[in-house]
Every structure is written in C-alpha cells, then in structure tokens.
C-alpha cells in the first residue's frame, strides 16, 4: 500500500503525472468557484509538524489542507515540548494519539520523515528534510514548467547554485528525470557533492556555456555562511561566476523561463531585474504550490487507498 511521500523517487511517472493533472483540475475548480473550499477532506486532520521555521511552506500546506476542508493543526517545534528534549518518537506518538491522518513534516535532519513514518500509522509528507529532499517543491516546479511551456519531457532544465546543500535540487533531479526532462546542474565544484556523477543528470561548472541551450533556469539560494566554510572566496566572485544577471539572461532563448524556489538573495544568485522580469515564474510557483499540495493531500488521503506515494515502510 502506498501511504507516504518521502522522496521524489517514490513517484512513478504515472504517480507524478496524476499529481500534476489533479493539481490542474483542483486549480480550475477553485478558480471557478466563488467559495474556494472543497468538501473532500472534511473530518480529516492534517498536522503541520515543523521542526524548522518555514512560513512559506507551512502556510502553503495549511492553505491546501483548508481548501480541502481538512482540520489543520500547526505544531511548531519552537515553544513546544520538542525544544524541551522530547524525541521525534514521542512527538509522533502524541500526534498519533490525537488522531492525525497526515503529518506534513519539515525537519533539519535528513531522513527524519522516514524515521517518523516508522512510528505512526497516518501518511507522512516530507516538507523538506535537512539537505535531503523536498518532493512537493519539485512537484510544484514541474507543474509550473508544464503550465508555462506545455510539456516537461525533453525540456532542458538547468539548476544553478548550492547543489551540495540543496534538498530542492535533489528532489528536482529525481522527479524531472522520471518525467523525462534533461537536467544539468551548474555550480562551483565545491558545491557539487562527491558522487553527483552517478545522479541521473549532467553537470557543468560553466553557466555561460549552458544558458543558451536551456529551456528552464532554476536558481538556488546560496547562503552567505558557505563563504566562511571556504566553498567560495566571496559573494562578489560567486555572483560574477554563477549569478543570473541581466547580461546572462539575454543569452537565453526567447521562451526560456527563470525559476527560484525562494527565499532568494537578490544581487547574489539573481539580479532584481531578472527576478521581477517577464521570464520569472517566482510568484506563480508560490500559487502553484497550493494546488500541487492540495493534489498530494487529496491523493494520499482522499480515497480509501492512497493513490500515490511510497510503499508502506
């Protein structure tokens, strides 16, 4: 039985396509309706379990669940018993005892959603774990590409930035590979993980060489702290070599789009003019996030059996 969404690798081509198609339908339904709420998950409880601050993702999941009429509980690690030393297991058992049907979890340790899924009966949705994965972000990115460009198969997608520490990059590489896109990762060698040569994608150190061939350019945030750890010498040099500025954008083909999962550092990895330009999908990505998360919740919780996701752990 499929029950959880822990990794983008859990999704087959059929699963992923079903999520995107369902998201499209749900978006159309809520757009047409005067009352945006659907009764689908009435009586079900979704817990947002956030061990790490993320207003953006938490709000998106909350809105998605509420539009499906689910009851939503926001359980933030800060100010809760978690900060007093309660273990993940105890937190999970507490939520279980309260009768949650799905737990949306954000955690600073890679793999925590997998651990959580062993402790509870309900569905676990990974909303970002450490430097591992963020599958719903990849789904909303794929949704946005399909919306803008009409397809995903055969698209040349370039992901630029701190691949080493990026859960968005990992989930995107896996999902886009499943969906038939052609992914190239671009970063300084220090920000590409050892072992990336065995990922289902290409890599390059040269952004300028890759841009003219790209249909999609996805810029990732680069944290300034990485500079202290000697991943690169200065933010200025990083921006010069890997930042998407106005000059570089002009080398893109006419239809190419520019994406960013946010939060972005304007002037570092992306110039403000580019972030606000016509190619930019950054605001759409946020709106699409709600539709895609509605689809995931609906497909995991809506029927008697979950329609997508990973096997029972």
């Amino acid at each position: 039985m499929k029950r959880h969404l822990l990794s983008a690798a859990d999704l087959t081509l059929e699963d992923a396509t079903l999520v995107l198609d369902t998201a499209t339908e749900l978006a159309q339904l809520t757009e047409r309706a005067t009352v945006k709420k659907l009764p689908t998950l009435r009586g079900r409880t979704v817990v947002n379990l956030f061990f790490e601050d993320s207003t953006r993702t938490r709000t998106s999941f909350e809105l998605a669940a509420k539009r499906l009429s689910a009851d939503v509980i926001n359980f933030s690690a800060k100010g809760s018993s978690v900060s007093k030393g309660e273990t993940l297991k105890d937190t999970a058992l507490t939520l279980e005892a309260m009768g949650s049907d799905a737990v949306v979890v954000r955690h600073s340790w890679s793999g925590a959603p997998v651990n959580l899924s062993r402790f509870i009966r309900g569905s676990v949705i990974n909303a970002g774990d450490g430097t591992h994965e963020h599958p719903t972000q990849a789904l909303l990115d794929a949704y946005t590409m399909r919306q803008r460009l009409g397809r995903i198969e055969g698209l040349k997608v370039t992901i630029v930035g701190d691949i080493l520490h990026s859960r968005v990059a990992r989930s995107n590489v896996l999902l886009l590979h499943t969906l038939g896109a052609d992914v190239t990762l671009v970063a300084p060698p220090t920000l590409l993980p050892v072992g990336v040569d065995q990922w289902p994608c290409q890599t390059s150190y040269d952004l300028d060489a890759v841009l003219p061939k790209s249909d999609v350019v996805m810029m990732l945030r680069v944290q300034r702290e990485r500079m202290g750890a000697a991943y690169f010498p200065s933010t200025r040099e990083y921006a010069r070599r890997y930042g998407l500025d106005v000059r570089r954008v002009q080398t893109l083909s006419d239809d190419a789009i520019v994406m960013h999962p946010g939060p972005m550092v304007r002037g570092m990895e992306i110039a403000p003019e580019v972030a606000d330009g016509v190619r930019s999908t950054i605001v759409e990505q946020v709106a699409n996030g709600v539709s895609v998360r509605m689809a995931v919740l609906y497909l995991l919780l809506g029927g008697a059996e979950p329609a997508i996701g990973s096997d029972d752990q």
Partner: peptide, 15 residues
C-alpha cells in the same frame, strides 16, 4: 561514507 549514497541521502560525507 562520502560517495553516491551520501550525496543522494543528503548526509554529510566522511571521506
């Protein structure tokens, strides 16, 4: 261990 598994699992490598 640092290698393809650590890269995919998002766990810091021990080379």
């Amino acid at each position: 261990n640092e290698g393809v598994n650590s890269s995919l699992l998002g766990l810091t490598g021990w080379p």
